[in-house]
Design a protein around this nucleic acid. Structure first.
Lengths: 206, 206
DNA sequence: GCCGAAAATATACCAAAGTATAATATTTCT
DNA sequence: AGAAATATTATACTTTGGTATATTTTCGGC
């Protein structure tokens, strides 16, 4: 495997949990099983790329309901549904809401493994993107208000002279803030700064 | 409606075609119906945002097969499937391959209309993005080889002096090419050029 | 080989950007 | 209020970027 990863299995049927535990352990993937969404939430998530195998139909909160609430709970884990009794609309809607797969029992073991690997890969990519975005965001937050203003106008293509006029400060102040912004953003060149701020959506951050 | 648009309906059942024709005409959407994918291909597509309503099961090429071949045929139209006899896997796979909806008869008229409007909106967005990308690409193609080289290095953050050294030309030549590149790309400032070329993937274009 | 067009280069100049030092103003904390 | 920290501004200088004009070079076609 390329690095550590975890598969969370939520199914009320203990025989299913045991079977999936065996299957995944046999290919060397770390597995955590739960008999309900509540139990999963109580345990929490590990800090590693992962994938959630979710039973559609369960006592208490159904897998479908849980899937819908995941975003609100801040859980971005890719989901692979498994079910004994599903209908077309349910499967279609699940995929439309972003699920990786919707498998009906009995399903082929390899099909499930492929879906899980796919999900783990997607989660790995997502985590990388989030980490990068967070780093840029943290750097941006380290700029003073004045430095952010200058940086924003610099990236818009204004000259130092124009920025000084817009902000009603001296051109020297603009140069100081600009240099400071470059240092804090860890941008060696102006194109670097443009690319970094491009990941920020400066309109939304003012 | 926000601008012109077309809905293509492909279904071998003439009563379905007539019903959809009525339904869509009643809300003021232009409709073209076909009894097979072949007939649709023979007619060709209009130059307007659109959506394809596709029967899953047809004599000759099935809707599912056609959907898979659309990318290869250069058809990016959003697809809404309708079917009388489908199974979960078929619906799930269709959505996974990018279909907007997978509806089983009998379906609610409003559900279909919503899906179609959704598809048209997506196609409109896609067409806009493609048009913008094409414009940038055309501008880039208007640069001479030397101008492209200079522009690429400029965007990487190199100084004119460094670019001259890398390309083994004089710094004055770099300045001329650089100015010419800015003019041809219609970039008023360096940040503009960075953003424009960012849409190009310069690695792939050499 | 000669010619015309396009590209490259040289020269000269000005505006803009980057940097360092120091002085002044402002804010913040005690 | 007073002191320390921070921000702003001024001055001076260097490097870089942008532009215009003129000259030279290069290259394809006749």
């Amino acid at each position: 495997m390329t690095g550590p990863c975890v598969v969370y299995v939520i199914d009320d049927d203990s025989s299913v949990r045991a079977a999936l535990d065996d299957l995944l352990a046999s290919v060397g993937i770390r597995v955590l099983t739960f008999d309900s969404t509540t139990a999963f939430l109580a345990h929490g998530m590990e800090d590693a790329p992962g994938c959630l195998v979710l039973d559609v139909r369960m006592p208490g909160q159904s897998g479908i309901d849980f899937h819908r609430r995941m975003a609100g709970l801040g859980i971005a884990l890719p989901v692979v549904f498994i079910t004994g009794h599903g209908d077309i609309t349910m499967g279609v809607d699940a995929i439309k809401h972003g699920a990786i797969e919707f498998l009906t029992k009995p399903f082929n073991d390899q099909t499930l493994l492929d879906a899980i690997q796919n999900g783990i890969g997607k989660d790995r990519d997502r985590r990388r993107a989030v980490a990068e975005s967070e780093m840029v965001r943290a750097r941006w937050a380290s700029l003073s208000a004045g430095e952010q203003e200058v940086a924003r106008l610099v990236v818009q293509g204004l000259l130092n002279k124009q920025i000084a006029s817009v902000l009603d400060v001296s051109e020297i102040t603009v140069k100081v803030r600009r240099a400071q912004a470059m240092r804090k953003m860890d941008a060696r060149t102006l194109p670097d700064l443009v690319r970094l701020t491009g990941k920020l959506d400066l309109d939304g951050l003012s």
